[in-house]
Design a protein around this nucleic acid. Structure first.
Ligand SMILES: [Mg+2]
Length: 270
DNA sequence: AAAACCACCAACCGCTCTCAT
DNA sequence: CATGAGAGCGGTTGGTGGTTT
């Protein structure tokens, strides 16, 4: 048979296969989906004899077998689209892929990492005139650490640092800047929605003069403005941006409490 | 001829989110 | 409120196939 190689895990090779999928395995999964439909991937190994985890089956379907997945080379139009979306959204691959027909998050991510990010490395991309507005996606700003960072990571500054990698530059005027903000999943994720919808919540602005020079300082600053916007200490989300006018910056913070349910606030206590 | 090197990317892993009970 | 299973996310890796030494 096609005992390629890829089984493997440690001891009992009879349990679950890993690694690349063979055409026979693909066919088994395809058959399963045709008769039972997609979903409930853990049942696949029980119904068919396929020695794959449910997780692996789901991934294989979503990224390759599904007829909606394009397999041909990326076009220049796609390059362009992905670059623009990445500028806007950072490494939110699923969101980006949602706007690129036929491409999955994994495809977009791989393609970005191996082709586009390097191609773009020439940091020539600064809009000379009005200095860039720095937009932070602070959706992770669950005000003040609830700690519980896992084992391997040295908790410390982690907080929003990863979001700093998604800083975006764009020319913007001071008035009515809209900010990408984590939408509370309304079925449809649209680039357009992301850009103009700020859900609900309170807003605070503070004129801050110059930008802070360290992330830590900037975070403190954001937190104080977040507090102005009504963020309390537990689990609140928000987004912010820095709006530039001449030499002066204004920190604009939008509180985005996750509760979509009752507009009536649960803020009773404080 | 073979070893060392390298680019690519499918798939894995650890984790979070969501929803049903 | 808790639990748990399924779905989904994004960083990372290891196998593969091509190229250089
Ligand atoms: Mg897509």
């Amino acid at each position: 048979m096609k005992d390629s190689k890829p089984q493997m895990n440690g001891s009992s090779e009879d349990r679950v296969r890993k690694g690349l999928w063979s055409v026979e395995e693909d066919q088994m999964l395809l058959d399963y989906v045709n008769t039972h439909g997609k979903g409930h991937w853990n049942r696949v190994s029980r119904k068919t004899g396929l020695k794959r985890s449910g997780k692996s089956c789901r991934l294989r379907w979503m990224n390759y077998l599904s007829p909606s997945v394009k397999r041909e080379r990326f076009t220049e139009d796609e390059d362009d689209l992905i670059i623009r979306l990445h500028k806007l959204l950072g490494n939110r691959w699923a969101l980006i892929a949602g706007r690129v027909p036929g491409r999955t998050d994994n495809q977009v991510k791989n393609y970005w990492n191996t082709h586009l990010s390097k191609k773009l490395d020439t940091p020539n991309t600064q809009p000379a005139h009005s200095k860039p507005v720095i937009m932070h996606n602070c959706s992770e700003l669950r005000s003040c650490c609830s700690g519980n960072n896992l084992s391997t990571a040295p908790a410390d500054d982690q907080m929003i640092s990863s979001d700093f990698s998604s800083n975006t530059t764009c020319g913007t005027k001071t008035r009515s800047v809209t900010v990408p903000i984590e939408t509370a999943n309304t079925e449809e994720e649209d680039e357009t929605n992301i850009m103009k919808e700020s859900v609900s919540g309170d807003v605070a602005n503070r004129q801050i003069g110059a930008l802070q020079t360290s992330k830590a300082d900037e975070l403190r600053q954001i937190e104080t403005v977040a507090a102005d916007a009504g963020a309390d200490d537990d689990g609140d989300h928000g987004s912010c941006c820095f709006m530039q006018y001449l030499d002066d910056y204004t920190l604009h913070f939008v509180l985005n409490n996750n509760k979509r349910n009752n507009a009536a606030s649960a803020t009773a206590g404080m």
